[in-house]
């Protein structure tokens, strides 16, 4: 978020924060409600991660002002996402390609 936001801009932003807050609360209840359905593991993981990702996007986009950030921050985060996925998924190869004696 820039350094020169006017009061009117801030007032508008505050309204957005409240909407995001309510959305986050609703999505939290959705996550808990879906977990009670005892879906098959794959479906449960998919739903939980999709909802969590939506919540994460709302927090990062609005509370952390990522929707209106400078390009350099996007570059930093782009690299971070790439390395995060690497650290998360590369070890899984060992699981799907085990050494069998």
């Amino acid at each position: 978020m820039g350094n020169h936001d006017s009061h009117a801009d801030i007032d508008k932003t505050v309204k957005t924060y409240i909407i995001v807050f309510v959305s986050l609360l609703v999505l939290t209840m959705v996550t808990v409600a879906v977990s009670r359905l005892h879906l098959p593991v794959a479906a449960a993981v998919a739903v939980a991660l999709v909802v969590a990702s939506i919540k994460g996007t709302l927090v990062a986009g609005y509370f952390m002002h990522l929707l209106s950030e400078r390009k350099l921050i996007y570059w930093v985060l782009g690299f971070t996402v790439a390395f995060f996925l690497a650290v998360l998924l590369l070890p899984l190869w060992t699981h799907f390609d085990p050494i069998i004696n």
């Binding site: 939290t28 996550t31 808990v32 977990s35 593991v41 449960a44 993981v45 939980a48 991660l49 909802v51 969590a52 919540k55 994460g56 927090v59 990062a60 509370f63 952390m64």
Partner: peptide, 21 residues
């Protein structure tokens, strides 16, 4: 605040992963 929101963001993923799945 950016740090605090990050802490919130981590919890948003920890909650379903640890408690609900």
């Amino acid at each position: 605040g950016l740090f605090w929101h990050f802490v919130d963001l981590v919890w948003i993923f920890l909650f379903p992963v640890l408690y609900l799945l």
